[in-house]
């Protein structure tokens, strides 16, 4: 049990290494993070892991300093046990084991995807949402059914964020490309408020509640090659890809009969997808929620929060069971809290 002490959370599933805190009553505090930004290309798992190792001790000092804590104020260590990139996860788990052993405090390994849901619920005060989880690696629609968070639909190839980053990279923009695409799209629509999608049509990759994004990436690149302006293609790309995600979210609401939509993941920082979700939810007498941006992207705080919640249910992770699982499934976590 954390008691009155703080729970430290460690996130290291992909490009970001992050420490976050919740206090003894589970109130979250901002994370201290650093993200790998490759000069070219995507994330190399081992290079990202090297980055995480190099930054871990400095960030640990930063997070303690941010709330004027000493190591003895830490009552438990939570870390992302999966899913994610193996080498990155291993660094987070090693750091977690080290701190836990040194301070002699409980260790708890949690599911990264479930952490996105729980920080969203806590921040937005929603009860039983359908989560539209849109990030680089993941694009999933998740809802709690029969005691576990279950994946109702997901991408059949690449994550939506990955698609946006790849498109940006083809145009020569560095990682992360999503914000650049958002800015160009916004400028385009502000200059052309009556813009038409005619000539800018892209595939609409909805397959029931599943999605796919590789075809839309190729088609968007083809529009560029045909000479369409970058702004117009960025705009069309967002309109098509986000509409597909929001439609899948709506299908999940219709299928489960739930009335709250929650956004999570890095792409949830985008204002256009937030706006679309709000319009969709309002249209069907439901509500749409999105946590502050610092809790949409990968962050240690959400890991600390889920660790705090799970410790309160009596679960903890022994050293022997503290190995990582790259393929940890969302429905492996029994949701015994409410």
């Amino acid at each position: 049990m954390a008691g009155g002490k703080w729970t430290l959370g460690i996130e290291s599933t992909a490009h970001t290494f992050s420490f976050g805190l919740v206090d003894g009553s589970g109130i979250p505090y901002p994370s201290k993070s650093d993200t790998v930004r490759p000069l070219e290309g995507g994330i190399h798992p081992r290079e990202a892991a090297d980055h995480h190792r190099d930054y871990s001790s400095e960030l640990f000092q930063d997070i303690l300093r941010s709330q004027n804590l000493t190591p003895s104020d830490i009552g438990a260590i939570a870390y992302s046990q999966g899913p994610g990139l193996g080498p990155c996860l291993r660094i987070g788990a090693s750091v977690a084991r080290t701190i836990s052993s040194a301070l002699d405090v409980p260790l708890i390994g949690v599911n990264h995807c479930v952490a996105h849901i729980e920080i969203g619920r806590q921040q937005c005060d929603c009860d039983d949402p359908v989560l539209l989880y849109v990030s680089g690696g993941n694009t999933q629609v998740i809802a709690k059914l029969q005691g576990k968070y279950r994946v109702l639909g997901e991408t059949l190839d690449i994550g939506i964020g990955n698609m946006l980053d790849k498109f940006a990279r083809m145009q020569g923009f560095p990682f992360p490309g999503g914000p650049v695409i958002e800015k160009l799209a916004l400028e385009y629509i502000q200059e052309n408020p009556a813009a038409s999608l005619e000539g800018l049509e892209l595939p609409y990759p909805v397959r029931g509640m599943d999605l796919a994004f590789s075809g839309i990436l190729t088609a968007a690149q083809r529009l560029i090659e045909k000479g369409h302006s970058l702004g117009s293609v960025c705009w069309s790309l967002q309109e098509h890809a986000f509409a597909a995600c929001v439609e899948v979210g709506e299908r999940a609401l219709a299928h489960t009969g739930k009335t709250e939509l929650l956004l999570g993941g890095g792409v949830a920082c985008n204002n256009r997808i937030r706006e679309m979700c709000t319009l969709m939810a309002t249209d069907r007498d439901s509500t749409s929620h999105a946590p502050p941006r610092m809790y949409c992207i990968d962050n240690g705080t959400m890991i600390a929060l889920l660790g705090h919640i799970e410790l309160n249910t009596g679960r903890k992770t022994s050293l022997l069971a503290s190995g990582i699982n790259q393929y940890l499934r969302t429905d492996d976590t029994l949701v015994s809290w409410s």
Partner: peptide
């Protein structure tokens, strides 16, 4: 698509 829904709604 059906397989995913069966797994999620009717585990």
């Amino acid at each position: 698509v059906l397989f995913e829904i069966l797994g999620a709604s009717h585990p």
